[in-house]
């Protein structure tokens, strides 16, 4: 932890970050940017959850888009087909996805490495096929229309600015809960599992329970983000939740830096905004993604944030002429 002192305490960082989110819209000149920020916030919520699983606990998921999609579709279907209010949709989405993740997680998280990657990937693809095929519910490949706008206890989020603040509060809440978890006995157990499963278990850590637990938590985060997405777009379609999106989520976490919540937010911001701001980028988007993944993993396996930090510190050391300390 070699961050500047003011972010050394995660709670100080949290306050600073929240303040920044609150004033950010005042600095924007264009409403379009607000739209991008909303997407960044939604993606950041998923990325934080995935980072708890991948970065902290060392368990990969190549199917997280499915949980995001399930959250979006559950509330979307309830809203469009049964006119349920968003809050009810949220409860059903979180509970439903939580239960599903628990049931899937028990056999899945017994697997390691490639097998785990493949199982989560297979799960993601199957879920996406159901989005496409259950057209009486989901509207099929062309998507589900008619999802109601976000209304919470009678308050309507009818402008981008209002929605932005809803996403901010959601992100801040997710962030705070995650910081708490990471800083606790649970967070230590998760990192211990990452370090050595066998050593964790001889110290009494129930490895499979914690793995499934964090899998469920990260799936629930993704479903929560899906809920925000669904009522913002008022339209969802299967292609938003495909294998590529799962990969994009992993990329966010990896780029930010594995095992850093701030890194996950940074990664989400970078990967969401890059294609939006660089129109020329679109054609090369996947190519550049691939290149980023490879280079970051080879040269900065700890992520861009820490990689740059290390490089700067190394530079400073060289300049000061004491490159030999360490």
């Amino acid at each position: 932890m070699r961050f500047p002192p003011f972010v050394r305490s995660p709670y100080a960082g949290f306050l600073l970050f929240s303040g920044m989110l609150a004033v950010l819209p005042l600095l924007l000149t264009n409403d379009y940017y607000l739209n991008v920020l909303i997407f960044i916030g939604i993606h950041a919520i998923i990325a934080i959850g995935l980072d708890l699983l991948l970065g902290y606990t060392g368990q990969i998921s190549l199917g997280h888009a499915a949980f995001f999609g399930l959250g979006a579709y559950i509330t979307g279907v309830l809203s469009a087909k049964a006119s349920w209010p968003p809050i009810a949709g949220l409860v059903v989405a979180l509970v439903g996805v939580g239960i599903l993740a628990y049931v899937i997680g028990i056999p899945t998280l017994k697997l390691h490495g490639h097998y785990l990657a493949m199982a989560t990937l297979g799960f993601g693809i199957i879920v996406q096929i159901f989005f496409k095929e259950l057209d009486f519910l989901t509207g099929g490949p062309s998507g589900l229309v008619g999802i109601e706008d976000m209304v919470i206890f009678g308050y309507e989020f009818d402008s981008d600015l209002k929605y932005y603040y809803l996403v901010c509060v959601s992100l801040a809440l997710t962030l705070l809960l995650s910081i708490n978890v990471v800083q606790s006995r649970v967070g230590r157990a998760l990192r211990a599992i990452h370090g050595s499963e066998v050593a964790s278990s001889v110290l009494g850590v129930n490895v499979s329970r914690y793995k499934v637990g964090i899998f469920v938590l990260s799936a629930v985060y993704a479903a929560f983000a899906g809920w925000l997405y669904s009522h913002y777009m008022t339209f969802v379609s299967p292609s938003s939740f495909d294998f590529m999106f799962s990969i994009k989520l992993v990329t966010m976490v990896v780029i930010g830096s594995l095992g850093s919540i701030w890194g996950a937010i940074f990664g989400a911001a970078l990967l969401t905004s890059l294609p939006e701001f660089l129109y020329v980028f679109e054609k090369y988007e996947t190519t550049v993604f691939g290149l980023i993944l490879i280079t970051v993993m080879i040269f900065m396996p700890k992520g861009l944030l820490r990689g740059v930090e290390d490089a700067v510190l190394a530079g400073v050391r060289v300049v000061r002429g004491k490159g030999d300390d360490k």
């Binding site: 990969i60 990969i247 992993v250 996947t286 691939g290 980023i292 993993m297 080879i298």
Partner: peptide, 15 residues
């Protein structure tokens, strides 16, 4: 394994 999975996925997307 995780590093290598991510790298080969990156390579696949790149190609």
């Amino acid at each position: 394994p995780i590093t290598l999975i991510i790298i080969t996925i990156g390579a696949s997307i790149f190609i």
